[in-house]
Amino acid sequence: MAPPLLSSLLLALGLGTSLTFSSSHWLLAWMGLEINTLAILPLMVSTHQSRGTEASVKYLLIQATGAAIILWGSMLNAQATGHWNIINEKEDMAMLVIITGLALKLGIAPVHAWFPEILQGTNMTTSMILATWQKMAPFILMCEVAPSYQWLTLTLGLCSIVIGGLAGINMVHMRKIIAYSSIAHFGWMMLVMSSNIHLALIALIIYSLATVVIFSTLNNSSSSTIQNLTFSWAKYPALMALFPLILLSLGGLPPLSGFLPKWLIIQELTKQGLILVIFIAAISALLSLFFYIRVVYTITAITAPNFFGYAPSKFFRSNFKTSSLSIPSVMALMLLPLLPALWAFFSL
């Protein structure tokens, strides 16, 4: 794709997200979501492959359905309350319709089946955008409507954590593994969204950091399956040495950064006395950790790196792509000591 066109599409993505972030009007927020959808479609078909075209058509249909549901809920709310403002009084039935549309756009359970298939049909860079940036706008809108419907957010969160953990166990394609991981992580965010939005934002930031590093590593090493990763040691040994730690951080293993949001969310739910919810979420998180450990075991223990025949200078060669991952990798692994500073920043 030509750089001017690519820059225009990326600017459109930023415009759509910014419009949704800054809007207090349901119609403007809906327009921001639609701009995001239309801007990502050319990136999905830029590979000129049949799977990319199929994924773009599926994505268009799903996002159009979600947008229609959100617009319908907004109209019901305007009819019942007489205004289109997001922050003013809300009508219960209309908000339930809007939450359904936002859940469809976020790809959380039980309306999640489209997300892994679409990620599998696109390239790594587009998959990274779909798993991180494209979820921010509907996530912010969900934060606006979730506080009044805790029972619904808890139900959606638990369904997402359980389904994300169970469905990802037997996956061998990395994009599908990350897709089910995304479903489980957004389930954790949904658990705490109605009671503490700051914790949900911290979880979103740490998840996005780790996911960007994982997709970038897969893109640099040209690895789409677990088996492909076992042959990437000779190309990028330093980067592949950090890759298992990033996976374990995404799984929430202490003392890595991914442990931070799960720890804080469990503390918040404990204060509310939701012991059964904590138990189900913690057990389901072990399922997600299991398929992360399976990937780590496969790429580190099954096929050892073969360094013979290569000059030592080629082992640790770097370029702009690998060097640019240094700061995100450190942040995805070592943010736990900065917990007080993060909490103070988001509590301002």
Rank of each mutant, 00 (worst) to 15 (best):
L166D: 05
L166G: 07
G168P: 04
N170W: 14
M171Y: 05
M171V: 11
I177R: 07
A179W: 03
Y180D: 06
H185V: 14
H185D: 15
G187S: 08
M189Q: 08
M189P: 00
S194M: 05
N196H: 09
H198V: 04
L199N: 00
A200S: 13
L201P: 01
I202Y: 01
I206Q: 00
Y207D: 07
L209I: 14
V213D: 01
I214L: 15
F215K: 01
S216H: 04
L218H: 03
S224I: 09
T225E: 08
S232A: 15
A234N: 10
A234H: 08
A234T: 07
K235T: 08
K235E: 09
P237K: 05
A238H: 03
M240K: 01
F243E: 00
P244H: 06
I246C: 09
I246Q: 03
S249P: 01
G252I: 06
P254E: 12
F259R: 02
F259G: 01
K262P: 01
K262L: 09
K262W: 06
W263L: 10
E268W: 00
T270I: 10
K271D: 14
Q272G: 12
Q272F: 06
G273A: 09
G273W: 03
I275V: 15
I280A: 12
I280T: 10
I283T: 12
S284Q: 06
L287H: 08
L289I: 11
F290T: 14
F290C: 13
I293A: 15
I293M: 14
V296A: 12
Y297H: 13
